[in-house]
Amino acid sequence: MVETAAVVVLAFYAIGYFVLGGGDIGVGMLLPFLAGDAGERRLVVAAIVPFFLSNEVWLVAAAGVLIGLFPSLDGDLLGGLFPLIVAILAGWILRDAGVWFRGRLGGDERAARTWRATCDAAVTAGSWVVAAGWSWVLAGWLSGKADGVLTEPQVVAAIVALLTLFALHGVAFCGLRLDGPVRERCARWFGGAAERRTFVLTSTVLAAVVVVAGSALPFAETVGDGRTLDVLLPAVVAVTPVLLAAQVWVWRVFGRRVSDPRHDPRGRIAMTP
């Protein structure tokens, strides 16, 4: 019973990460394809910017819940998947640095433009590495091997399928976030289907993959000691609504679509110093 609750809590944070963080990873992957010029690249990065911090903390939380509730699984999984986890972390660092530092150099001279192009490249490359790393991990779990790096043909096929899923999820997320030509371009990927419905669909598929893949993990053998769970689990369950409320607040404050200031009749935003 306690163990089931622990698995549910872990699944909640993991799904939260893949659905929310997966969206901005997908956008990062497709940055060069979704944006036609420098102005649009700025918009596509802006689509993820208010959320990337609040999205990635879901993975931080999932990792915390994993080490807290399933301490030996944490060591076995991360140790067994060592190269993939290192790659995911490296990709994550790269894309975060790209997002974080992109706007720190103002101006429009050549050096500043190169700086922003370099940051965009870091976001795209990092996003591909993160997505590929997770696809590989999930593909391994789907094949029933929790803590090893597999290279069978069916695993490779699953990796390609999952990468496609990340990309589609990114397009769906981008379509919800932006306005104007980029939004239309995103809509075309899904044949003009309603954006909310597309995002719900890609989210559901991602969540289902996480649940099915995660069910291969040996939770029963690795769950923490009962005395730890008795204290930690109620604490985690108690703070979760607070964390969720903070997230909902962020979505509400920044949920409006970002529109291209070049098409904005007020034209007030393009005045970055």
Partner: peptide
């Protein structure tokens, strides 16, 4: 504008 702070953070 709601997205002004975000666009400023992203840069030009």
């Amino acid at each position: 504008d709601p997205s002004a702070a975000v666009l400023t953070f992203v840069g030009r």
